[in-house]
Design a protein around this nucleic acid. Structure first.
Lengths: 337, 337
DNA sequence: TTGTACGCGTTATCAT
DNA sequence: ATGATAACGCGTACAA
């Protein structure tokens, strides 16, 4: 059995209260006493029991990080950054891969809240739905602990959002192609999440802004798996075979853009002259093809950093803005003029 | 304040012992009593306090998943699979991104053990060193909880290993190129971990097996970041510029293989006739290039599944083998003859 | 089958 | 500055 605070107090010849004070860095301890106790603690490598500690403090300094799929490149990066910064600040991370189903998400959150986490971080905009009643579970969670949303926006007490301005980024990306003289820009996406909706809106607005109204035939949803690049290529090939004409492709994700590059190569199209391509997320995938892919960097590093800072502030009792918005950057490479 | 077991017991008109029995599925409860208690529990959505529960049970059903960097594609996949299967079996996952430094790893493990996890899963072979004293921390951890190693091997009581036979996979990959008539096979790697060492040994053995002794000039360590593909390409270009001749490249990771493909394309080499390439991990990267990359699938799905099954067995008090070894598969694509 | 009473290892509140 | 002691909320012998 592991040592308890009683054992240490006996060995050090003090009361458990004093040991506790030393442990928690209280000022009210004589230097010599503190030293004496510390010596015993180190000698026996004593660590306070986490459960008992949690009972006393009503916290184990643990944060629940929820994401649909932590093997997704973008989400994985976010989770990594969040965990590292939390750890630096003395918090541990309970990882929850909830999948994309609402029911599963709900159940997972109920469970995790009963484990007494200090806060919940919802990574990715899949957690916010257009249907208000599907967001009810967020409201409920926020009644117990602060809820942090990464890349989604939802107004509710005790919910804090940190996100990238996907609308503006996509507006700018689309506009840049139009300015280069490309009219028929295919928009390819694979999600209906909050941020996906914002991206699409940015594309539409840019097209409309340049009097390109009839975008409906150019907007396509790819429902397959994004790690099956060849299926994406086939999807585009099929569209072309059916007579759709396009000289630009903008995608909601770099993987989709890879499919577009392969489609172009496969059809001996000159890139970017015959086919310009812009991806999203500025992942390492953009460097994997020849030519390399122009993409939007929405700065996950900055977002995660701000999110954690906000969280620490909130946990410390500070008042914090309910929403932080960052701008993305178009990183030009070889698939655009 | 949240409800306690006392509140529930009062409302249900029973003692806390009975509520506890209902909660923990004891048989010794009359059906009608159980129903009565359950009704109250559900009515108030009562959840037992996790800390108090942990104290009683000496467990919160939490597993520590440690990996150097959860944004690495391969590790991210493994973490995801582990978390999902643990969750299905009623365990939560404490994620720890420890980085690649020994000191940091040690400190992280000490911390995490004090949080009373039921077991530690060390993902990736970086955790096992050639230097025995650098593995001391594993022995110590194993004295407290079962330690599961994914893709590494280390013999020690209470340590269980589940891994892929990287030696055999690399032996086979190398042999296949040699059989195709390629003698000068460059070996490019980026790690000195346990599994990296095994891979290299497999390459060497295959070369030696075919009387190709002088491999030293062909073996190269790339110390840069693997998500900077262009640096990898430049690295190979530099080797070629210095007069090194090679018609095959085998890499310890798919990202490195991407660099090789780009090197080939850049120099107008015919792939695979002038330059054959084999990657490792069979990640989505293999499908990102033209031509697509032949790679080794070391079946992370099977490994993680077995690892969890072993873990559950061990936690349940069963006797389990100390090591499980899986075979990899060479997935042939377009970069090999 | 059910209830009582104690133990678990802390933190926190009083005294002193 | 230090010590005694009461919570904290649950599990579980043991008793009934």
């Amino acid at each position: 059995m592991a040592l308890t605070i009683y054992d240490i107090s006996k060995k050090a010849g003090v009361s458990i209260a004093t040991v506790s004070r030393v442990l928690n860095g209280s000022d009210n301890v004589k230097a010599s006493t503190r030293e004496k106790v510390m010596k015993v603690i180190e000698e026996y490598d004593y660590r306070p029991n986490a459960f008992a500690r949690g009972m006393g403090l009503h916290s184990l300094r643990t944060i629940g990080i929820l994401c649909a799929d932590s093997s997704d490149m973008y989400l994985a990066r976010a989770v990594y950054l969040l965990e590292r910064e939390l750890h630096q600040n003395g918090y541990e991370s309970l990882l929850c891969c909830t999948g994309y189903e609402l029911a599963e998400r709900k159940e997972y959150i109920r469970l995790i809240l009963s484990k007494k986490v200090d806060s919940l971080i919802l990574v990715g905009s899949h957690y916010v739905s257009d249907v208000e009643e599907e967001n009810e579970y967020i409201r409920e969670a926020a009644q117990q602990v602060p809820v942090m949303l990464m890349n989604a926006s939802y107004r509710c007490p005790n919910v804090y959002c940190t996100l990238s301005n996907d609308y503006a980024s996509m507006f700018e990306a689309t506009s840049s192609l139009i300015r280069a003289g490309i009219d028929d820009i295919l928009y390819l996406y694979d999600s209906n999440s909050y941020s996906a909706t914002r991206k699409l809106a940015g594309y539409k607005a840019a097209m409309k802004n340049h009097k390109l109204q009839n975008t409906a035939p150019l907007i396509h949803y790819y429902g397959g798996r994004t790690d099956q690049i060849n299926e994406i290529t086939a999807f585009l090939q099929d569209l072309a075979d059916r007579g759709l004409s396009f000289h630009g492709v903008i995608t909601s994700d770099d993987a989709l853009a890879i499919g577009a590059v392969k489609y172009g190569v496969q059809n001996n199209l000159r890139i970017p002259q015959d086919l310009a391509i812009i991806g999203y997320n500025n992942s390492m995938l953009t460097q994997c093809t020849v030519p390399e892919i122009t993409s939007v960097d929405n700065q996950p590093d900055k977002i995660t950093h701000q999110l954690i800072q906000t969280l620490l502030g909130v946990l410390g009792g500070e008042e914090k803005p309910a929403e932080y918005m960052f701008s993305g950057k178009l990183i030009k490479r070889q698939t655009t003029p």
